[in-house]
Computed example of a mutant assay.
Amino acid sequence: MTVARPAGGPAVMARRAEPRGSVDDFPTPPWAVRALTEWLVGSGVEPGGLCCREPAAGRGHMARALAEAFSDVHQIDIHDYGTGNLDTVADYLDEPFWPFVDWTITNPPFRLAEQFIHHALSTSEAGVAMLVRTQFLEGVGRHGRLFSRHPPTAVLQFAERVPMVRGRLDPQATTATSYCWLVWDRCARGPTRLVWLPPCRKRLEREEDWT
């Protein structure tokens, strides 16, 4: 992994690579999750009354933001961080027969993102949303295995950067990595839409997110 350390916090570079066996612990700022749920609601999805699975829940930062919109959020992770938020400690990919949920939403492990997407698509009735590096859209092999067969409904590209650092949330962190949400909405029709999420951090973040 290559890390830049500018003033104000470490920045995770676009060429970051996680070693095999790593738990890939890079918590998602809650404001970036609210940007997704806000877009879902604006697109006609009504999360109230729906069940969402977060299969790489970590300490629960994303799940807490999802619970502001979804009625039920089931948290899974391969590692128990001791914070008491997990419903199930398990390897998401090792269990082929998870009960169906309405939506699966997560920031998947860096090197397992494609497998997480395939697994989520097979166990989600209404939709899937995955936070990935924008660079994930590239690749001839990935196009053949995933995007040509299961094109997303929308690519939600953040206009501003979403800083994520190992093991913690840091409001002062910066990043050289660009992120986007990939959304598969089973109720939507038509070709993949490219949507820019306008700058929204200042409006969506809350002081308690960082405590």
Rank of each mutant, 00 (worst) to 15 (best):
D91Q: 02
W181C: 09
R133G: 15
L131R: 10
A176I: 00
V101G: 08
W196P: 00
A11R: 12
F26S: 01
E125N: 13
P99E: 11
L66P: 05
G58M: 03
G58I: 04
V162Y: 07
P151Y: 06
Q135V: 12
R20M: 05
E95F: 08
R111H: 13
D24Q: 07
C200L: 10
G60D: 01
L40K: 07
D94I: 00
R201C: 09
R111N: 14
R20V: 14
L40W: 03
C200A: 14
T211L: 13
S178W: 01
R142D: 08
P199Y: 02
T88W: 02
F97Y: 09
P19C: 11
V195I: 15
P19H: 12
T192Q: 03
E114A: 13
N85I: 12
E38Q: 13
L66N: 01
M164P: 00
S178H: 12
R5V: 12
P47V: 07
A17K: 14
P27S: 05
P109N: 09
M130A: 15
P191Q: 03
T177V: 11
F70N: 11
G82A: 06
R168T: 12
C180A: 15
Q135T: 14
N107E: 02
P109I: 03
W31H: 11
W184S: 09
T174Q: 15
T83K: 10
G84P: 06
L137T: 12
G144Y: 04
R161P: 05
S22V: 09
P6C: 01
E125K: 14
F100Q: 12
M164V: 13
W181L: 08
V128P: 06
W184T: 10
V155E: 09
E95W: 07
H150Q: 14
L121K: 00
H61Y: 13
R166K: 14
C187M: 11
P47Q: 10
A120Q: 06
V165S: 09
D87V: 01
E208G: 02
L204N: 11
